[in-house]
Simulated assay, not measured.
Amino acid sequence: MNIFIPLLLGVLIGRIFRQKLRMDLDKPLSATLLLLIFFMGVEAGKVEIDALSLLIVSVTFAALTILGSLAFSLLVGGRR
């Protein structure tokens, strides 16, 4: 589904009826956001992953990133 069409429609309606629409949208927006987060969690829960291998890859990537940054800083800046 193309999300830009409803977005542009909302912007146009908001611009056209700017002075006439004076309502509090905090509660509907909060409820919609909570539903969006809930359904994103449901979709994420459907995905099957091997958590241990993902943890190992993530930790390895983080360690190599740190070591690469330290090596580059020593190469450029030197040790004082």
Rank of each mutant, 00 (worst) to 15 (best):
D26M: 13
F4W: 14
I37W: 13
I66H: 07
K27R: 13
V47E: 11
V42P: 02
L8C: 11
F38L: 13
V47R: 09
A62K: 08
I37Y: 13
I3K: 15
L70R: 15
I5D: 05
V11C: 05
G10D: 01
G78Y: 02
G14Q: 01
G78H: 06
K46P: 00
I37D: 11
L8S: 10
I5Q: 11
F17M: 08
G77C: 03
S53W: 12
L64A: 12
K46R: 09
F4K: 14
I66V: 09
L35C: 04
T65Q: 10
V47L: 03
V59D: 04
I3G: 07
T60A: 15
L74Q: 15
L54K: 11
S69V: 01
F4E: 15
L67D: 02
K46H: 02
A51V: 03
K46S: 05
R22T: 04
F38H: 08
G14W: 00
L8N: 13
V59I: 13
A71G: 02
L74A: 15
E43R: 12
L35G: 05
L29T: 08
L33W: 01
A62W: 09
L34Y: 12
M1W: 05
L21P: 03
F4P: 00
G14M: 02
R79V: 07
F4H: 13
F61M: 06
T60K: 09
F72M: 12
L25A: 04
L25H: 02
D50F: 07
N2T: 08
I5C: 01
A51M: 06
R15K: 13
I16M: 03
R18L: 09
S69L: 07
L75E: 09
N2S: 14
G14T: 01
V47T: 05
G78C: 01
V59K: 08
F72H: 10
A71I: 11
L33S: 03
R80G: 03
A31P: 00
T60G: 04
R15H: 02
Q19I: 06
F17E: 00
L12Y: 05
L21C: 03
R80D: 04
L9F: 05
V59L: 15
I16Y: 03
M40W: 09
L25C: 04
A51L: 03
L34K: 15
Q19Y: 07
L70F: 13
I56R: 15
D26S: 14
T32Q: 12
L21S: 07
Q19C: 06
I49P: 00
A63I: 09
L12S: 08
V47P: 00
I37E: 08
G41S: 01
